[in-house]
């Protein structure tokens, strides 16, 4: 589904990603871990098409198409969903109106007619129930005045509504208390299927106890330096990242 080859990216001329290779197939859950500043969130931003990130080398294919060639909204319509580390507040734009617009834009992209109000509301109710999402939040302005946990839950709720093929979760667990973490994880697990895939970016192993990954990758200094299964996450939790850093420094050419 997602095929990242030798991806290099820079912000304001500073290299952030330095040759990422990653292959994600439908039905898989990949966790990307790594210390602060290793490039985890940058990878998410590059995949979603944030403007400040300039791809300097490499390619990203999504479902056989060149992802990097698409504008952010087209990527979203093609089925790439980013759960934001810091979901944005947009005053005056109601959650429900926003969602309806997004759903219909995505449908239009796939040549489908707009959803009728009734069908949309039905879907909304069904997903609210599924995701244990507070209906009161639906009529409020998008994320405005939401608590940190509410914002994250709103993002996951949007994921349920938009039914992406690939969901990239950028430190969704940061700032969540244990109850919110449980609800968010349960939501993600309900959305897992053989047709979609998840890339979960996290700093801690904690989230991976709830959402069990098929693969774990360690990102360090803009590159994936180690890949493994969920046991790798446990090892990292235990030892920290320092032992890896030491290993890598030995391998790395002098700059």
């Amino acid at each position: 589904m997602l095929n990242i080859k030798n991806l290099h990216a820079a912000v304001e001329g500073n290299a952030i990603l330095k040759g990422i290779n990653l292959n994600v197939k439908a039905g898989e859950v990949h966790a990307i871990m790594g210390p602060n500043g290793s490039g985890k969130s940058s990878l998410a931003s590059v995949l979603a098409g944030r403007e400040a990130y300039e791809v300097t080398e490499g390619s990203v294919e999504f479902e056989g198409k060149d992802l990097l060639d698409m504008s952010p909204e087209v990527r979203a319509r093609e089925g790439v969903f980013l759960a934001f580390q810091y979901p944005v507040e947009i005053p005056g734009v109601s959650n429900i109106n926003f969602l309806k617009t997004a759903v219909n834009e995505i449908r239009a992209h796939h040549g489908q007619p707009p959803m009728q109000a009734k069908a949309f509301l039905d879907m909304l109710k069904q997903k609210q129930k599924l995701m244990e999402f507070d209906a009161n939040l639906m009529n409020r302005s998008l994320n405005e005045g939401f608590s940190g946990g509410e914002k994250k839950r709103n993002d996951i709720f949007q994921m349920a509504m938009l039914e992406p093929k690939l969901a990239i979760m950028d430190e969704t667990d940061s700032g969540l208390d244990i109850d919110a973490l449980r609800v968010v994880s349960a939501g993600v697990n309900k959305l897992r299927s053989k047709d979609n895939a998840f890339v979960i970016i996290t700093h801690y192993q904690r989230l991976l106890e709830y959402i069990v990954p098929d693969y774990v990758h360690v990102l360090y200094n803009g590159r994936i330096v180690k890949s493994g299964t969920k046991e790798l996450a446990l090892e990292l939790e235990e030892k920290g990242y320092d032992w890896l850093k030491a290993d890598i420094r030995l391998e790395e050419p002098v700059q």
Binding site: S71, E73, A76, F81, F84, A102, E105, Q158
Partner: peptide, 12 residues
């Protein structure tokens, strides 16, 4: 950030 957030949900 607001524009990008909406872009990411499929809105131009």
């Amino acid at each position: 950030d607001q524009v990008f957030y909406l872009n990411q949900r499929g809105i131009d």
